[in-house]
Design a protein around this nucleic acid. Sequence first.
DNA 1: CATTATTATCGTAATATTGCAATATTAAAT
DNA 2: ATTTAATATTGCAATATTACGATAATAATG
Lengths: 107, 107
Amino acid sequence: MGSSKTHIFSIEHNELAQVAKVLAHPARIAILEYISKQEGCICNDLVDEIGLAQPTISQHLNEIKKIGLLQGSFEGKNLCYCIDQERWLELQHAFNNFFSNINLNCC
Amino acid sequence: MGSSKTHIFSIEHNELAQVAKVLAHPARIAILEYISKQEGCICNDLVDEIGLAQPTISQHLNEIKKIGLLQGSFEGKNLCYCIDQERWLELQHAFNNFFSNINLNCC
DNA sequence: CATTATTATCGTAATATTGCAATATTAAAT
DNA sequence: ATTTAATATTGCAATATTACGATAATAATG
């Protein structure tokens, strides 16, 4: 016990839940917002900006990366992260579909 | 340690994360979808439909209720849940804003 | 009021998440 | 090649989540 019974749910439900899980932490919301406001991003800026320790930020970035939302490229000395546009729009549509397909007829 | 440092983040970021956390489980996604497809809802149907034990379903329903997404009313013997339309639309907009306000200029 | 059916709560075990100090890795600059 | 600066990984402690059996509460029905 303790772990989610993912196998009893559809792929669609599991995937949406997985993405929601990444958004389910204020640090990751803040990180995504911050990266998007910069031209690029240097991870060390995030440590100052967010106020969590460097390893913690690195782990959060990794969670975001896992669902394909980050593209990393090297720019001089510093690793430059940016948001993967295609994936971003894909997830935007996924959430929008979820919210739109719900039938709001109340009992 | 172990708990999120919610106090260092903005109210907006915390609130969006809190809602995302509720969506971050396939059972809750499935429950919302199922409720919306019915005229009303009887919890016991959910137990059969989802395939989790009755106390587990009850707990998931409670999480969904906490963020204001469920309205419950009594209808005969059975508790009838339905989705709170106003709150639903509010959250739809919140997610849409989040996805729209991100600047996708890549480095 | 006793019975039955449905939902909620309690207690508990298993697993996951969060966070950071210590350390390792990586790549540019000297 | 050494130093320096930035990011990643490891290990671990604290807390949160998930799930369910047992049990309580609630309300309709006989």
